[in-house]
Design a protein around this nucleic acid. Structure first.
Lengths: 296, 296
DNA sequence: GTCAACACTTTGTCCAGGACAAACAATGAG
DNA sequence: CTCATTGTTTGTCCTGGACAAAGTGTTGAC
């Protein structure tokens, strides 16, 4: 099969070049082949294992105990999480995953639309889209679907959410909320879900999309006279970096502007940050909103 | 002011750490301060100059002649391009840029909507959105607007285009077109503009969003029985990498699936690639489509 | 038993300075 | 002017060392 140079592996796995080299030195894995120039070439199956490692690290495992372990042992480590998420395997969700896997775009879209109309926007998001995203992520981890299928799913859901939110129009009640992600976080589905939860409450939500530099967020929040800044983190985002970024952003914001942070990267972490509203789940958003309105 | 560590500079400017260090060694710029650990800290104004350098490199200048030059000389180099783009300064576009600069979200949205209705989707894209994006990019380069404002603009245009495309429904005529960007290219506005040009022609457009790995694109194109794969590149994408990626993708696709490539990164480059349809401007898309239909 | 303070280990990121092939520019021959 | 050849520039990779921040385990006080 094909083998990738180190830069490509960094892009594919998200593990920096420096880390790849130091793992090789310390744990004797990965062990890339060398080309005629003496440069590293990583065989496909090692890249596969690196992806798995990345995920396990995100779950809290430590490199010393897993990098050198055989691939089968790692797959076993992932199982518990897999089974936990798969308890009831909601038939509706399973059906949707099948549509994604089979590239049935038209039916996928129609089915999502049906659910949306049936549940209403907020319940559609918290009861269907959220668990479905999680299930898609799991399925990808287990090799049941590919990257392209995951993208296809994301794209359809985004379109649906965006047009729903759009049709609501911009709200007129306070607070004014500025939403974005920090540099390094390119996933905006979480952000859209937040917007979908809040928009029906008449809030003025403005999204800046992904990866706005900290200084620019703070500047924009002041210029646009926002009351709240909301940031979201996907499961793929390293938790430490998230906490660091949140703290920096809080310090860059005036005290009069609240900071809300949420997303899968923060789940299960007990750490709390002063003066920051942490959103554990989507359902908590309406409460956070009510609380803000009461306090202001 | 603030000074950034090397990793942050890499993220902000897109210039790899290795390159930053080798420039310092060879051209005596940048010259970061050192903190107490001996690690580099780049002052804000040097980071600013690095951003400028990045853009000049993309325009074809070479490091040896510009990295060591004083900032004022570099700004002068940029002028010609600036003036060329500013010939008539369409009043409608200037007005929109002002709305972006002043964070007037509601009016921005309303004005865009008016233009859309007045021009129709295709002309809206090719006559307004395309030159407007270019103007926004220029304005950002000259420091007239910030990153946040650029994001705000992108977000609004995206919402508008997506809901327009969405309301057209999926087309039923051939060809089936799979659209995405290659790894490293995160901007999808170009892709949306393409979709907006093609969707009214009844084409079946499916977008995978940004950054789909090559192998997954090829796999998805086959699985989904697509006729055409279309990829787009923003001005920020390095041209060489684009050409390399396009060639690899072409080789990974069966001969029966056409490959279309376009975007600002490819403009002005005379290089042609065998068996790849290169789209110079958005207006050429209907022609390319007609040609494909004639040939099939 | 809980909690805080301490020492020890692990781990990611940075550094210096060298190397080399691919891309580019300059030169010369037909 | 066109094409091939030579020389220079430039990004990326290499090795091996260093160190602080984060994590883990232990001890002792309450």
């Amino acid at each position: 099969m094909s083998a990738l140079p180190i830069a490509a592996v960094e892009r594919d796995t998200g593990i920096p070049k420096d880390t790849l080299r130091v793992w090789e030195r310390r744990y004797a894995f990965p062990q890339p082949v060398r080309d005629d120039k003496g440069e590293r070439l990583y065989p496909a199956e090692q890249v596969e294992k690196l992806r798995l490692l990345r995920r396990l690290l995100d779950q809290g495992h430590r490199p010393g105990s897993i990098v050198a372990a055989p691939t089968e042992a790692l797959a076993a480590l992932l199982e518990p999480a897999g089974e936990r998420g798969r308890e009831p395997a909601d038939p509706g969700i399973a059906a949707l995953i099948d549509l994604v896997r089979l590239h049935r775009s038209a039916e996928l879209r129609a089915t999502l639309q049906q659910h949306l109309v049936k549940l209403g926007l907020q319940r559609f998001v918290s009861e269907l889209v959220a668990p479905l995203s999680r299930a898609i992520g799991e399925a990808w981890l287990h090799g049941e679907i590919g990257v392209a299928e995951e993208h296809l799913f994301t794209e359809h859901v985004q379109n649906l959410l965006r047009s729903s939110i759009s049709s609501l129009g911009t709200g007129s009640r306070s607070p004014r909320i500025l939403m974005t992600t920090l540099p390094g976080e390119e996933h905006i589905l979480g952000l859209l879900m937040v917007e979908a939860m809040l928009a029906p409450e008449g809030v003025q939500c403005i999204s800046l999309g992904a990866q706005t530099p900290l200084a620019d967020i703070a500047q924009a929040a002041r210029d646009g006279q926002f009351d709240v800044v909301a940031v979201s983190f996907s499961a793929a985002f390293p938790a430490r970096q998230a906490f660091r970024g949140i703290e920096q952003l809080r310090d860059a914001l005036p005290a009069s502007i609240a900071l809300w942070a949420g997303g899968a990267a923060l789940h299960g972490k007990r750490k709390r940050i002063d003066k920051v509203q942490q959103i554990a789940q989507l359902d908590d958003l309406p409460d956070a909103l009510a609380e803000w309105r009461k306090a202001n």
